[in-house]
Design a binder for these strands. Structure first.
Length: 560
DNA sequence: TCCCCTTTGAAGGTG
DNA sequence: CACCTTCAAAGGGGA
């Protein structure tokens, strides 16, 4: 397993050092952005080039240097971070959930009761929060709950999360902790969260937070969970239903439980009720509590198996299926986790509000993260995936595909497919020719770590050119949007069927070498920019004039 | 009201 | 194995 600390405390050490780094990052951003928030755009742009050079590398040393620049609000942030760093350290030791080992550590990050993967939206994903819990709670006899999985679900055991929310402090890793940040601070979360015992919204009966609620905590390492497994079981049992509802359709895996390995099973057991392993008699949430990971088809169209989107179908059938099939969302990847965490921060720091712009910035920041930093997210993402797989053994990413699973169909529909599925989709406007020139061979994703299967792997060779590679490989394509997506339609890669057929809305660079990870103007904000590679710098210079005249908004400057 | 946009990463499908 | 496509989050903006 990729242990962050595999390098021997490297991670730990990294964590400690990371803190400064993060601060630095924030500071850097905030310093510049606080000022720049109102700063004239031109100003920002003009300075961009210079700053980019300065930021050419996000070395730890650099971060360290900047560390001193703590901002006013950094104090509170610092606190949170402290907690988290502590948690991380402990995790290194064996996981957050070695309760016995850390009896004194009162704070556990707990997820919003809602399953992160359910996006019904009914329950605010709110998320994972720090749970001020009494460790003794973990001592709850497991036998009680586990035996009778069908025991009535006490209302007090419902998904409401009793938590202590440290809403204001968003630790860089919070996303990892809190599933939906935006749901970040779910207003719906009862104030009772301040107390270990919470009144169940439904019954009003006080209940103690269940460890399972902590589950979303990915830092939790499978191996470390065992100790708390049974304590959770009681909760699960009482729940009477899986915390994470199992898709009615059932999982592909006939015997999900068998698919689990020891470590995972422990994880699951601790986090999820046995029901999760064994599909409940009913298809959906008996409690009616929406699962975070499960999205109502109404919200998210579920592939019904045919190539026609539900909306296209007759209302009745579609509806039926919707009711039947909850939409299980994909586990968040490292970047998504990062985004969740950082989005609010970025939004707060800049005037930009459009997600597209924010995401661009986040993308840049992501690349500017150190390996260690990214590794953390990769690790969390990995755990997310593990957990998800445990929760939904039969689930496949394909399940969420709206488009036809059949490639042949895709080929047939080809261009029309996109429009068929979404009439509102952009028309095929192509800027084909020129785009081809921009391309640059990059890693398929161009990510710094190239999404290593194991974060540790990435960490393993810090000196590895991964980061450099990605950055350099990344073309600084200032011209983005228009052709970004459009060109897909007309780019005729070797795989005519694949590329053309699905040239759908997805603008994944991977599909086309032309514009890979274009760097938008918005992301060029000095404070937000990550150290540009030489390539970037060159591009910046070459396009400097453009920047000057370009408004700070999503860049839509077509390639020339 | 719905979809687009934008990011990176993961998963799955195809050749 | 390489490549391609889709989806995950988010929320302003546009149709």
């Amino acid at each position: 397993m990729p242990q962050l600390n595999g390098g021997g405390g490297d991670d730990l050490g990294a964590n400690d050092e990371m803190i400064p780094f993060k601060d630095e990052g924030e500071q850097e951003e905030k310093i510049s952005e606080n000022v720049s928030a109102e700063r004239d755009l031109d100003d920002v742009k003009s300075s961009l080039v210079n700053e980019s050079e300065n930021n050419s590398s996000s070395s730890d040393s650099e971060h360290a240097e900047r560390r001193p620049q703590t901002r006013p609000d950094s104090e509170s942030y610092e606190k949170t971070r402290e907690y988290f760093s502590e948690a991380l350290r402990r995790q290194q030791d064996g996981g957050f959930f070695k309760s016995p080992h850390y009896p004194g550590y009162p704070f556990l990050m707990i997820p919003d009761l809602t399953n992160p993967y359910l996006s019904n939206g009914s329950l605010s994903p709110g998320a994972r929060t720090y749970l001020h819990m009494k460790w003794p709670l973990l001592d709850v006899p497991s036998s009680a709950g586990i035996k009778d999985s069908r025991s009535p679900t006490p209302g007090h055991l419902s998904n409401k999360v009793p938590v202590v929310q440290h809403g204001h402090h968003v630790h860089p890793l919070t996303p990892l902790i809190t599933y939906s940040n935006n749901e970040h601070f779910s207003p719906g979360t009862p104030p009772s969260h301040l107390s270990p015992e919470i009144l169940d919204p439904k019954t009003g009966i006080p209940r103690t937070p269940h460890p399972s609620e902590l589950s979303p905590y990915y830092p939790l390492s499978p191996g470390a969970v065992g100790s708390i497994a049974h304590p959770l079981s009681w909760f699960m049992q009482h729940q009477g239903q899986p915390m994470y509802s199992i898709p009615p359709g059932g999982f592909r895996h006939p015997y999900p439980a068998l698919a689990m390995n020891a470590s995972m099973s422990s994880l699951v057991s601790s986090r999820f009720s046995p029901h999760m392993v064994t599909p409940p008699p009913h298809s959906l949430h008996q409690t009616g509590i929406p699962h975070p990971a499960i999205v109502s088809p109404a919200i998210k169209q579920e592939p019904s198996g045919d190539n026609i989107s539900p909306s296209m179908k007759s209302p009745v059938p579609a509806k039926k299926e919707e009711d039947k099939k909850p939409h299980i969302k994909k586990p968040l990847n490292a970047f998504m986790l990062y985004m969740k965490e950082m989005r609010a921060k970025v939004v707060a720091e800049c005037t930009l509000k459009e997600s597209a712009a924010i995401n661009q910035i986040l993308g840049r920041r992501w690349h500017s993260l150190s390996r260690e930093e990214q590794a953390k997210y990769y690790e969390l993402a990995r755990k997310e995936r593990q957990l998800h797989s445990q929760l939904y053994p039969g689930w496949s990413a394909r399940d969420n595909y709206v488009r036809t699973p059949s490639h042949s169909q895709q080929v047939q529909t080809c261009f029309s497919t996109v429009y068929f599925l979404s009439a509102s989709k952009k028309q095929c406007v192509q800027y084909l020719p020129s785009e081809k020139m921009c391309d640059s061979p990059t890693s398929s994703h161009g990510s710094m770590l190239d999404s290593p299967a194991t974060p540790s792997a990435a960490l393993a060779s810090p000196a590895a050119p991964a980061a450099t590679h990605s950055e350099q490989a990344q073309p600084l394509s200032l011209t983005t949007k228009p052709e970004g997506r459009m060109h897909h339609h007309f780019s005729l890669p070797g795989k005519a069927s694949g590329s053309t057929s699905s040239s759908s809305s997805s603008s994944q660079p991977s599909s086309t070498p032309i514009l890979t990870r274009p760097i938008p103007f918005t992301s060029l904000h000095p404070s937000m920019l990550s150290p540009p590679s030489p390539f970037h710098q060159a591009a910046l210079h070459s396009h400097h004039s453009l920047f000057q005249s370009q408004p700070l908004s999503l860049v839509t400057k077509p390639t020339e």
